[in-house]
Nucleic acid binder design. Structure first.
Lengths: 171, 171
DNA sequence: TCTCAATTAAGATTTAATCCTATTTATGAG
DNA sequence: CTCATAAATAGGATTAAATCTTAATTGAGA
């Protein structure tokens, strides 16, 4: 790398940076400039994204961060609680910034593919409790409710024939 | 097909068969012998499985059911509540028979890949409530807690270095 | 200062899942 | 029972996500 930017991980005021720096330290991993950039880019994301999108962003910015590096490091961000897995359209793994809009889960209509985000403290609390009971530490979770939304429910009742899971085919 | 086996869907005493038959009818889909066989095979499964495994089973039995057919029809079983998505080792989609051992969800250790099944009425009830609130009908869900299990937690504390998400690479 | 973890480029590989074409089968409505 | 057509088949091609390979370079951190 050629930029002379100073290191910032571990000095940040937000909890996120510290958590990531701690994780790297605990694992004996190096704080590379690439990891910092990935961290920063993710922190600036407001929408769902996938690994490839992230890679493309760096490319667009002229930052020489390879696809491999993005793929290699995203799991670290998951583990640090910096991102969560998320619902998306294709078969890719989707992620989202935990700090933008806070944590939430998803309801997906199996017919039309509509995605509704929801947030439930009750679920969060239950999960924590369950993990404690099993003496595990919750890192992140993936919770998706596949539903038939009210609109589609109507259509099906009316006898409308539609392709099976047409959303699965949609790009 | 050459077997002259009589149709059985829709006449079964269990709730599962009826639900599947109803779904097919509602969608205007035919009750084919292949769909029956897939239904039956899934009903006999006690462990997690993926689409390809199911296909291999038919091949082993000498039933000429193609991979495509399995892939095409599994979503119907999901929709009918006959199977649920499940946690597995690779990146495949895993399923499991809802009636064998009842419904459950999973905790997966991000380090060693250990999978622990759990069952929680509280989660089930909350999900139902949430769906009602959104006027949706819950078809199935996918709920996975990614954790650091007690054993791995110890190892990490002790400073042991391990590959990042080594389970992701394991076959 | 120096070692080695981590990165890069660029292309190859793997593998899940889906699609294609032409043909055959058999469901379910009439 | 007849028949149109939905759904299946084989089996090979394709797509696309994710990972790996190799050889060379870089730079974090002791």
């Amino acid at each position: 790398m050629r930029t002379g930017r100073k290191r910032s991980l571990g000095k940040g005021r937000g909890g996120g940076e510290a958590a990531f720096a701690e994780l790297l330290k605990k694992k004996g991993l190096k704080v590379t400039l690439e990891r910092q950039k990935i961290y920063e880019e993710v922190a600036s994301m407001n929408n769902h994204f996938d690994a490839d999108e992230l890679f493309e962003r760096f490319k667009a910015k002229g930052l020489p961060i390879s696809r491999d590096t993005v793929y290699r490091n995203l799991p670290l961000l998951l583990e640090a609680g910096r991102v969560q897995k998320s619902a998306g359209e294709g078969k890719r793994e989707y992620f989202e910034n935990m700090e933008a809009g806070g944590h939430h889960d998803h309801m997906i209509c199996v017919h039309c593919g509509t995605i509704v985000e929801f947030r439930s403290e009750a679920f969060e609390a239950l999960q924590q409790k369950l993990c404690e009971k099993h003496r595990c530490k919750l890192i992140y979770h993936d919770h998706r409710l596949f539903v038939e939304c009210a609109r589609c429910s109507n259509n099906v009742e009316k006898g409308a024939r539609r392709a099976v899971h047409e959303n699965h085919e949609a790009k």
